[in-house]
Nucleic acid binder design. Structure first.
Lengths: 134, 134
DNA sequence: CGGCATCCGCTAGGATACTG
DNA sequence: CAGTATCCTAGCGGATGCCG
């Protein structure tokens, strides 16, 4: 797309990602997964580029704050690109990069696994709750 | 092991896992991953059963509170078993179940992936920080 | 439309002190 | 040794309001 991706964007929200990758290392990715919306956003964008508003509705329940934060962090990590068309009203599209797709695939695999073992986990929880607690 | 696994254990800490699996569904596993110690504990136990104290030292830096909480949650999910030998002083061993090993494997795969793409992510972050912010 | 700024509650998680 | 109970804070994340 020949869109003039406006790169200029100074301090956003609470400075987006404060994590210096100097110390945290590889666990960064686990932190991202813990941020409850990351996976959902990834899943939505896996199907193709989407606009901000579309994402907001698709995720239904997400606050603008978290959507923006999640998108910004994923963008910072190189998982997605942000295309801005400076029209009025503005039109912003988000699209997964190669890295983003790869990441999304990995996550999908994990989700798939958890789906398969969901019942086993639930059963274990029931047993645990029934035996240990009252 | 012919150990009388003492099952009785009432309200522990802040009731361990408050997540009713009725509503949250499969995202439970993502929540677990977000709990920063889960992966580490899983990694340690993947090598074989370990005692509480050994885990505490191996993880170095974890508080007893978090170690206990993490272990309890994993136990509740059916990922590990807790063996108690009611001697003085007591001897408690933690061991991954089949499910736990499977889970640990999955996580290991993900960590492996993140390790491989770590540099790409770091590079992306540098670019992002250099261009957008000052 | 696509954000950012702000207030504010909730909880993850560390530190500390105390039991069996 | 293997926890439990309590206090405390840093931050995630929701709700609201304003702006280009």
């Amino acid at each position: 797309m020949s869109v003039t991706n406006t790169v200029v964007r100074r301090a956003s929200l609470e400075s987006c990602g404060s994590d210096d990758h100097e110390d945290c290392g590889l666990e960064l990715i686990l932190v991202r997964l813990g941020e409850q919306w990351t996976v959902r956003v990834l899943a939505e964008l896996a199907g193709g580029p989407l606009r901000y508003r579309v994402l907001e509705r698709a995720l239904d329940g997400i606050s603008q704050r978290m959507l923006t934060l999640t998108l910004r962090r994923l963008e910072r990590d190189g998982h997605l690109l942000r295309h801005v068309e400076p029209t009025v009203p503005p039109k912003v599209t988000y699209e997964l990069t190669e890295l983003g797709h790869a990441f999304a695939t990995q996550v999908a695999t994990l989700v798939e696994w958890s789906r398969q073992h969901k019942e086993a986990i639930n059963a274990a929880q029931d047993t645990f709750d029934a035996s240990g607690r009252d």
